[in-house]
Design a protein around this nucleic acid. Structure first.
Length: 81
DNA sequence: GTTGAGCGTT
């Protein structure tokens, strides 16, 4: 299972995102996809935690929270197709 | 600025 993190600033880095989520559990993986054509940030990312309990805690704590002057959108990610 | 990649093998 992974977490979707939307409405991110283009200035956010994977390590910065990692630090925020690490407050609620062990971050297993962080990914900030860039547009393959333009090489620009897409404004969202994905985070995987060690357990579903930690993921739920992070989603509950960070969804709707303000970070880097943006209101985060955090929820369970859809499986990649 | 709202759901990732590559695909000839992650």
């Amino acid at each position: 299972m992974s977490i979707y993190v939307g409405n991110l600033s283009y200035e956010v880095t994977e390590s910065a995102l990692n630090e925020v989520f690490a407050e609620y559990g062990s971050v297993k993986r962080v990914q900030l996809p860039v547009d393959r054509e333009t090489g620009r940030m897409r404004g969202f990312g994905f985070v995987e935690m060690e357990t579903e309990t930690e993921e739920a805690a992070a989603i509950d704590a960070l969804d709707g929270a303000e970070w880097m002057d943006r209101t985060l959108k955090v929820n369970k990610a859809k499986p990649r197709r």
